[in-house]
Simulated scan of single mutants.
Amino acid sequence: MADIEANKAVARRYMQAVVDGDAETIESLQHPDVTWWILGYGDMSRADFIASVKSGLLTAERRHVEIITLTAEGDRVAVEAVSEMTFPDRTYRNEYHNLLVIRDGQIVEGREYMDTRLAAATFG
């Protein structure tokens, strides 16, 4: 049986690591065989996802993520969040819904939904 509170804590740590720009924690919370699917981009490997986060969100001068709701059932944690990232030449604001599957303290699957139009306009 999944430890729902532990899984929710992993999701919170993951979101906080994005705010902190903590690539080491972001990587450590992902299982080596994690799979990601991102709306508008499709399937991504762990390596591609981490590279995308490092070259995108983690380059912001300031990062703010507010968790609006966090709901868990079994090994699944749903996180609704709003973000604001400040870059030297622009500010990126978006709303997210992340569905994370967590087992043994690591994310084994992630699905990310966002306004892809905003992401494309900001990151190209």
Rank of each mutant, 00 (worst) to 15 (best):
A119Q: 05
I26M: 14
V108D: 05
V79D: 02
T91H: 08
L57S: 09
G105D: 01
H31F: 10
G56Q: 01
D89F: 08
G56E: 00
G74S: 07
I26R: 00
D22T: 02
T69I: 11
A47H: 07
R46E: 08
W36S: 15
Q16F: 05
A23R: 07
A60K: 00
F123Y: 13
Y14H: 12
H97R: 01
G21M: 07
W36V: 13
A119K: 00
Y96G: 02
R46D: 11
H97M: 09
I102M: 01
S28E: 09
L70F: 14
V101N: 06
V77P: 05
R62V: 05
L57D: 06
Y41E: 09
A60D: 00
Y113F: 15
T122A: 10
R103C: 07
L39M: 15
T69P: 15
A120F: 14
V53M: 13
K54S: 12
E66N: 07
A6D: 04
T59M: 05
A23I: 14
M1P: 15
D115G: 06
G74A: 05
D75L: 01
A17P: 10
D22L: 08
E109W: 07
D115T: 03
T69F: 15
L100H: 03
Y14D: 07
A72E: 04
S52V: 03
I67G: 07
A9I: 03
A11H: 00
P88M: 02
H64G: 12
K54R: 11
M85V: 06
G56R: 00
E61T: 01
M85A: 11
R111I: 02
I26F: 12
G110L: 02
A9F: 07
R62L: 07
L118C: 13
T116P: 11
D75G: 08
N7Y: 03
A47V: 13
Y92G: 03
L29C: 10
G21R: 00
R111A: 08
G21S: 09
T59A: 03
R117Y: 15
E84K: 04
Y14F: 15
D20I: 08
D115Y: 04
M114L: 14
Y41A: 12
M1L: 06
L58D: 04
S52A: 14
L39S: 15
G56L: 02
M15F: 15
E66D: 12
L100K: 00
R93C: 14
S52C: 08
V108P: 03
A120R: 03
N94G: 10
L100G: 01
A11S: 05
L29R: 01
I102A: 02
M1S: 14
R76Y: 12
Q16I: 05
